[in-house]
C-alpha cells in the first residue's frame, strides 16, 4: 500500500474498525456505571443534594455495589477469546513511542504559543492524551476502589487511614469529573470519532489525519 495520505477517493471511503463490539460494550457499560457513581456520590456529598435526596443508607448501598461492579465490564471484556481487540488496544495504550513524546511536546509548544519545534508526528491508533487519560482512569479507578472499600470495611484500619482515604476519595472524585468532562467535550468536538464508539467504524480519511501509522498498519493486514 502506498502512503495513505496520498491515496485517492477509494481509500478515503473505506471504513476501518476502530472499536469492536466488545470494546464498545465495555465503554458504554463503564460510562453508565460511572454516571451512577457520580450521581450517587454527589447525593452523598453535597448538602443541598443530601437535603433533596436523603435516604443515605440506600444511596450508599447503590454507590458501593455499583463501585464494586465498575471493574467487571473491563475484566470480562479482557478475559476471553472475544477480548482480542481490547487486549491489543490496552497494549497500544501502555506502550509509548517517540511519536507520542513529540505529540506531547507539540501540545506544550502550542499552549505556549510557539511554532511546533518538530514536524507533525506520525501517530498510531491513540495519541498521548488518550493514553494518559486511559492510564489515569485505570489507576485512579483502582485507587477509588481501594479507598472506597477501606471506607466501607473500615474497622481494622486506623482512623488516620480512614481520614486519608476520605481525603483521597473526595479529591480524586473531583479530578475524575473534570477529566471525564474534558473527555466528553473532546468527543463532542469530533463527531466522527464519537460515532465510531457507537458504530465501531471510522473513515480512513479520519485515520489518515489522526492516526496515520495505525491506518498503515491496518492496511497492511
Amino acid at each position: 500500500m502506498g502512503d495513505p495520505q496520498l491515496s485517492g477517493e477509494q481509500v478515503r471511503q473505506r471504513a476501518l474498525l476502530r472499536f469492536d463490539r466488545v470494546e464498545r460494550a465495555v465503554h458504554w457499560l463503564n460510562a453508565s456505571l460511572f454516571l451512577i457513581l457520580v450521581l450517587t456520590g454527589a447525593a452523598l456529598y453535597f448538602t443541598p443534594l443530601i437535603a433533596l435526596v436523603g435516604r443515605r443508607r440506600l444511596i450508599e448501598q447503590v454507590h458501593l455495589y455499583v463501585g464494586l461492579a465498575l471493574p467487571l465490564p473491563l475484566l470480562l471484556g479482557l478475559a476471553g477469546s472475544w477480548g482480542r481487540g481490547l487486549r491489543r488496544d490496552v497494549g497500544r495504550i501502555n506502550r509509548w513511542t517517540e511519536a507520542d513524546m513529540r505529540w506531547l511536546r507539540g501540545l506544550v509548544d502550542n499552549a505556549a504559543g510557539r511554532r511546533p519545534s518538530a514536524p507533525r508526528p506520525r501517530l498510531g491508533k491513540f495519541n498521548a492524551g488518550q493514553k494518559l487519560n486511559a492510564a489515569f482512569v485505570a489507576g485512579g479507578g483502582l485507587v477509588m476502589l481501594g479507598t472506597g472499600a477501606l471506607l466501607r470495611w473500615y474497622v481494622p484500619f486506623p482512623l488516620s487511614w480512614r481520614a486519608g482515604a476520605t481525603f483521597v476519595h473526595n479529591w480524586l472524585a473531583f479530578m475524575f469529573v473534570v477529566v471525564i468532562l474534558g473527555h466528553i467535550a473532546l468527543a463532542l468536538s469530533d463527531r466522527e470519532a464519537l460515532r465510531s464508539m457507537l458504530g465501531g467504524r471510522i473513515s480512513s480519511a479520519w485515520a489518515a489525519r489522526h492516526a496515520p501509522a495505525w491506518l498503515e498498519e491496518a492496511s497492511d493486514q
Binding site: 495504550i93 501502555n94 506502550r95 509509548w96 507520542d100 493514553k131 494518559l132 486511559a134 492510564a135 489515569f136 485505570a138 489507576g139 485512579g140 483502582l142 485507587v143 481501594g146 479507598t147 477501606l150 488516620s160 487511614w161 481520614a163 486519608g164 482515604a165 476520605t166 481525603f167 483521597v168 479529591w171 480524586l172
Partner: peptide, 20 residues
C-alpha cells in the same frame, strides 16, 4: 509509560491514604 502511570497513580493514592 501507561503501566508506569497506573502504578504512579496507585502509589500516590496509597500515600494519600496513609498521610492525607
Amino acid at each position: 509509560i501507561g503501566r508506569r502511570t497506573v502504578l504512579s497513580v496507585l502509589g500516590l493514592g496509597a500515600l494519600g491514604t496513609l498521610f492525607g
